[in-house]
Design a binder for these strands. Structure first.
Lengths: 203, 203
DNA sequence: TCGTTAACGCAACTGGAGTCCCGTTATGAA
DNA sequence: TTCATAACGGGACTCCAGTTGCGTTAACGA
């Protein structure tokens, strides 16, 4: 709210400031994964990170602000994409990756918490959307390659295909509570491939 | 936690108690839709419902407890299913219904808040899953009818088809932030139908 | 190396969410 | 209608998340 001075951490971003930021973001991730979004207080994070809680309130202000920063960090480190030579193989690799993330003991609850945080705060929502945008851009090329190979029709929207694979897994995680297993992941891939070949994703 | 006495509202559920419950659930819905899950305090709901806040804490205990009760109520009133005579038509009606709910000024934010609450509390999560189970059961017959008509293969899992239609819409609402419009709803239907005809949902 | 000051840490403070006590209302059974 | 008591309401109290003030540390330019 104070527009006369710059945000803390921008003028002297090196050394101690960077160490504090790293420790806090890691501690926040742990705390989010363990306790969930609502049971979180910054004092707990400060203790874990061995940092004064004043620092947290001054630099990030609120829990959503901190979460938004975390998401920016997560979007920065891209994850490797496999190239198997077929759309089915590539999408299966992607689906397994998403499945692994969402069922991971630490990352699953973390993603739940991140999404919960995004529903409560506009800034966090923007950061979350940017994160998924990056993920989609990262994996879109495997769909484009399938178009080049002639597996699926020209003009197919790559983002739509990737979304179609992700969506059922997130739906199970967040809404329906149905089991998140390899069968679900593989079925999501089959659905997306069948639809793509039928030309449903052609713009 | 007090197992020696029954829950409040179970011995004298009529008259005043019922009025209080109704007023509180409505006020809670309004507050959730307007303020979101985290900015909620029971005192605010008590003011809206013109009820003492002591009553809220005594009957529901916490915000998640109240939300879980709300979800039970929402699952109770089923929503009408249209019969158009074709799988495509029925699923489009369903997709439009979901779309309408999620983009509604009041219900959209409410659902976001409900899902956020479910990620934070096990009791709420159970209530949410039950809610979607009811929804799925309600719409499954239109898939079974399509099997009977021979539109899609025998053995198709009805729930999977309905889930396939819902998932992309919820994914947009909660995760990616992509636009929630009729194009998205219609595409979700096309995807589900194409996959169903290809036999992807056969158990 | 030195000086300026950004950024941090400690501890005292504050406001409001959640609890508790006790008197009041009105439900449901006799 | 009467009575016992389930359920509600008001208000005081507690406790801790979040704030503030001020002294300390260390980043970075000269």
């Amino acid at each position: 709210m104070n527009e006369s001075s710059s945000e803390p951490g921008t003028v002297r971003p090196g050394g101690r400031t960077a160490r504090v930021r790293e420790a806090v973001l890691r501690a926040a991730g742990d705390a989010l994964a363990e306790d969930g979004f609502d049971r979180l207080d910054l004092a707990e994070i400060a203790r874990r990170a061995e940092v004064g809680k004043t620092t947290l309130y001054r630099r990030w202000g609120t829990v959503p602000g901190l979460v938004a920063d975390m998401l920016g960090e997560m979007a920065a480190d891209s994850l490797p994409r496999t190239e198997t030579g077929s759309l089915d193989g590539d999408l299966t690799a992607f689906a397994r990756l998403v499945l692994g993330t969402l069922t991971d003991t630490r990352q699953g609850p973390l993603f739940k918490a991140l999404i919960a945080a995004a529903t409560c705060d506009e800034q966090t929502a923007t950061a979350l959307h940017r994160f998924y945008r990056v993920r989609l851009d990262e994996w879109a090329p495997c769909v484009e390659a399938a178009v080049t190979r002639g597996e699926i029709p020209a003009g197919t929207d790559p983002h739509e295909v990737i979304r179609a694979v992700s969506a059922p897994l997130y739906y199970r995680l967040l809404a329906s509570g149905d089991p998140l297993d390899e069968a679900a992941a593989d079925r999501a891939v089959l659905v997306a491939v069948a639809a793509a070949k039928a030309g449903v994703f052609v713009a």
